[in-house]
Design a protein around this nucleic acid. Structure first.
Length: 752
DNA sequence: TCGAGAATTGTTTTT
DNA sequence: CAATTCTCGA
């Protein structure tokens, strides 16, 4: 026991030893929370005699889960691998498989990813005959997801609807759920919602799981949403041995329904909860930590805590300003290349706000021959060829998933086109049968009723033959062989090989990869359970999960993706107003949005162990137009004693990007599209080569409540004026475009 | 039915 | 600018 605890500080020890009853650990960035969780699991097993399978640990990503499992295993003499470590979604998936029938699903229900959701919602829009321009699938899916995260049913939504539009949205939600059910499918949110439904509707089921998990731990607690909180509450209600670890400063998933209040409400939901704060940072140098503290302290709504470190100062944080996004990417990559004697590629990560920013960086990596790993964007398992093969597997297994069948009916090309598919789909709807059944009925004599000619029927028959042949062989095939068969016997491989393009070549490689993955599954031929497990695993895997720490290459990813990770050298690119913080957050008029961006910045900074380099570009291409922006306010939040600045006037820069070459023409702080016209915010500021100090207005000619006029937006009413340290931030509710946040010295508002 | 080219449209972050 | 959707001719 002494061994287990000796490497922990006082607070960490307390957290590990407090095994009975609810426990809330407020763990600052880099304060060793994973260490606490793993030691706690080990302590429960070896010191408290808890059976490993009675412990549930919920993590945010699969990668975090496998890491945690590995570390627990290393700490335990006994069998740590029996500890249930998984993400919320994986946990719910496993629970749901066992009780699916109770909810009207079969055990091999499928999970719809974002693409499938879009396809399905598009169908809903068609079914309900909604106007696409008023009800986009994107917006509808957003509403549906928000409703699910808040545990609202379509009925709830309908009764709360205040107008026609909201009622239509509720109808779409209802229809969407109906179609999911008809396809024996759930989306990501459903997995949580359905599990909670299961627990609430079947107390005996809940009781058995409560009994199973006597000890529960939840990582990244600040990013749980209300359904997840409910799930936890239900599961822990019996023994109340629930330990959650979180940091309100690192809450960055509000857009996905995460609610910081879960941290505050924890003590309400579990009265008498012990609260332990971990405030010593073991990761970063003091310069980096001070920079992080400087940024986050501007947030109003946060629990007060002071993160400190015993480490040395280390290098100062750097801020480098480049002329263009192109220069910035080159500067970062060349910096990494030229510093190789001090560190390896694998020590470096480049982080950015949006996935779109990765392109330039990736190009430069290729150009300079830097090994890199791009995380995010299109997930491996979302690639077309992978999804095609998966659709074959689903169809072979059950064929109740219409989306899957429709996806592959003409892949590879069989001459079955859109008109045929529509006819079959209509027939299926009319007879209340699924799509595949409609095909079989068409070819067994009812073809005329669908308006299909004999040629088309022949083509359809050849498709069903492929499927039924594979089904017959299914019992004799292992999972790996089945995936191979789905690739070769369907003509898919032949079509790709015939193409002879580099593109097709890489598709084949990807599918080979999928086959390798299937080969890892130890299964008996014809094992149905292995197949649905495989399909589930593939659906829930995310891109960060594939990150292997041992590979020596630069990692490129979004700031969100970097949560929970750490690197010796971190570069954060695109530190510009309008990029980070994003334009959307800046113009929403809601301070919470800026605070969330600031937390994201805090997360980014605290990923760095030894060296942090921030950078920005004074102009970059966005949507085919050049956008100029000033340095991010987050950079200004870092005190000069921790920061070295290199504005571009002081550096030569590559590719002729000398400062000042633009002259002193008008510059704008940002622009965005409104209708077909590009609207720019702001006016002339200082010429390039100098820092962007704008003249602060000593007094404003208007105040809150006044009506003012803006050169582009027209008239509006001032709703707020914030006295920022550089300038007044004026929020105006414009008649034409709604609320906008503007800087007084740029916006040139006049009182009317 | 299907491909090529035109037109349109979109921009945050993700399990 | 890039990715997706639309339109039209064969």
């Amino acid at each position: 026991m002494a061994q287990l605890l000796e490497k922990l500080n006082d607070m960490q020890q307390q957290a590990v030893c407090h095994t009975e009853g609810p426990l809330l650990i407020l763990a600052g960035a880099g304060s060793g929370k994973t260490r606490v969780l793993t030691h706690r699991a080990a302590y429960l097993i070896s010191e408290m005699g808890v059976a490993p399978w009675n412990i549930l640990a919920i993590t945010f990503t699969n990668k975090a889960a496998s890491e945690m499992r590995e570390r627990i295993d290393r700490l335990c003499e006994e069998d740590g691998s029996k500890v249930w470590v998984a993400t919320f979604h994986a946990t719910c998936g496993r629970i749901l498989r066992q009780h699916a029938e109770l909810l009207g699903y079969t055990a091999n229900f499928t999970i719809y990813d974002t693409d499938d959701q879009k396809t399905l919602m598009r169908r809903v829009i068609k079914t309900l005959d909604l106007d696409k321009s008023m009800y986009s699938e994107k917006m509808l899916l957003g509403k549906v997801s928000a409703a699910k995260n808040a545990m609202e049913t379509p009925d709830d939504m309908y009764s709360m609807a205040g107008n026609f539009r909201d009622r239509k949205i509720a109808e779409a939600y209802e229809e969407y759920q109906r179609q999911l059910r008809a396809n024996n499918a759930m989306d990501f949110d459903d997995m949580l919602v359905k599990t909670v439904e299961l627990f609430k509707g079947f107390p005996e089921v809940l009781a058995s799981w409560q009994d199973r998990f006597g000890y529960i731990m939840v990582d990244e607690y600040q990013d749980t949403n209300p359904v997840q909180f409910e799930f936890i509450k239900l599961l822990a209600a019996r023994y109340k041995n629930i330990c959650v670890v979180g940091d309100d400063d690192q809450s960055i998933y509000k857009f996905r329904g995460a609610d910081i209040r879960n941290i505050l409400d924890f003590e309400k939901a579990f009265p008498g909860a012990k609260v332990i704060k971990l405030e010593q940072n073991y990761r970063s140098t003091s310069n980096i930590l001070n920079a992080a503290n400087g940024v986050i302290k501007h947030n109003q709504g946060r629990k007060d805590k002071t993160l400190w470190t015993a480490s040395s100062e280390g290098d100062k944080v750097e801020y480098r300003e480049y002329a263009t996004g192109y220069n910035e990417a080159e500067g970062i990559i060349l910096d990494i290349k030229s510093n190789l004697k001090n560190f390896a590629y694998g020590d470096c990560a480049v982080l950015y706000r949006t996935n779109a920013q990765s392109r330039l960086l990736e190009e430069k990596c290729v150009m300079y021959g830097i090994p890199y790993k791009l995380v995010g964007g299109v997930n491996f398992y979302q690639r077309r060829e992978i999804k095609d093969i998966i659709a074959y597997l689903k169809t072979i297994a059950g064929a109740v998933d219409d989306l899957a069948v429709q996806r592959i009916i003409n892949v590879p090309k069989r001459g079955i086109g859109q008109t045929t598919v529509t006819k079959i789909a209509d027939f299926a709807t009319a007879h209340d049968i699924n799509f595949y059944e409609a095909i079989t009925r068409a070819i067994s004599g009812e073809g005329a009723a669908l308006g299909l000619n004999s040629g088309t029927l022949k083509k359809l028959e050849s498709f069903t033959e492929i499927i039924s042949n594979l089904r017959k062989r299914r019992a004799a095939l292992s999972l790996k062989e089945l995936v191979e068969a789905a690739f070769t016997d369907t003509g898919y491989e032949a079509e790709l090989k015939a193409e002879k393009s580099v593109e097709a070549e890489s598709r084949i490689e990807n599918i080979q990869e999928l086959i390798n993955k299937a080969a890892e599954f130890p299964d008996e031929p014809g094992d149905e359970e292995a197949l649905s497990q495989f399909l589930e695993e593939v659906a829930l895997i995310s891109d960060v999960d594939t990150l292997d720490d041992d590979e020596n290459r630069v990692v490129l990813m979004t700031l969100h993706g970097a949560k929970g990770l750490e690197f010796s050298h971190v570069y954060i690119a695109g530190m510009e107003e309008g990029v980070f913080p994003s334009m959307i957050a800046m113009s929403s008029g809601d301070d919470d949005d800026i605070e969330e961006e600031r937390r994201l910045c805090y997360v980014g900074i605290t990923r760095a162990r030894e060296k942090l380099t921030l950078s920005g570009a004074s102009s970059r291409m966005v949507n085919g137009e050049t956008r100029y922006s000033r340095c991010s306010s987050f950079v200004d939040d870092i005190r000069r004693e921790y920061l070295v600045e290199t504005r571009k006037s002081e550096r030569g820069g590559g590719s002729g990007s000398y400062g000042g070459s633009y002259g002193s023409g008008p510059r704008v702080t940002g622009s965005f599209k409104k209708g077909d016209e590009t609207v720019s915010v702001g006016g002339a500021v200082a010429a390039l080569g100098k820092t962007f100090n704008t003249q602060r207005l000593s007094a404003l000619e208007y105040e809150v409540g006044d009506r003012v006029k803006h050169i582009k937006f027209g008239e509006g009413r001032v709703t707020a004026i914030v006295d920022g340290k550089r300038d007044y931030e004026v929020t105006v509710d414009f008649d034409s475009v709604g609320p906008k946040k503007l800087f007084a010295s740029f916006a040139k508002l006049t009182k009317v």
